[in-house]
Amino acid sequence: MIFGRKPLCGQIHKEIPLSTPIDEVSFTVFDTETTGFQVATVDRLIEMAAVQVEGLKVCEEVQFHTFINPNRQISQEIIELTGITDDKVENAPTSIEGITRLFKFIKENNSNCLVGHYVLFDIVTLKSELKREKYSLGRMPTIDTLDVIGYLSPSYDMRDLHRYAQNFGTRLYERHTATGDALTTAYLFVELLYHFKARGKRTWGDLLQATENQSRIF
Rank of each mutant, 00 (worst) to 15 (best):
F3S: 12
R5T: 11
K14S: 08
E15K: 15
E15I: 15
E15G: 15
I16E: 13
P17G: 03
S19G: 10
S19W: 09
F27V: 12
T28K: 03
E33R: 00
T34F: 00
G36I: 01
T41M: 11
V42R: 08
R44F: 05
R44D: 11
E47D: 11
E47L: 08
Q52F: 01
V58W: 07
C59I: 14
E60F: 13
Q63C: 12
F64D: 12
H65R: 14
H65N: 13
F67N: 14
I68E: 11
N71H: 05
Q73P: 06
E77G: 10
E77K: 12
I78H: 00
E80Y: 09
E80F: 09
T82N: 00
D87F: 14
K88S: 07
K88I: 02
N91M: 05
T94E: 04
G98T: 06
I99H: 00
I99S: 00
I99F: 00
R101Y: 09
R101F: 08
L102Y: 14
L102G: 06
L102E: 04
N109G: 11
N112F: 04
G116I: 01
Y118C: 00
V124C: 10
V124M: 13
L126N: 03
K127P: 01
L130E: 04
K131P: 01
E133D: 11
Y135P: 12
S136F: 05
S136I: 10
S136G: 11
R139P: 11
R139K: 14
T142S: 15
D144F: 01
T145W: 08
D147M: 10
S155D: 14
S155A: 13
S155N: 13
S155W: 12
S155L: 11
Y156S: 10
D160M: 09
H162Q: 14
H162W: 11
N167W: 09
N167M: 13
N167K: 13
L172W: 03
H176Y: 05
A178R: 09
T179A: 13
G180M: 05
D181C: 02
L183E: 10
Y187R: 04
L188Y: 09
V190K: 04
V190F: 06
E191Q: 10
Y194G: 08
W204Y: 14
Q209V: 07
Q209D: 10
T211H: 07
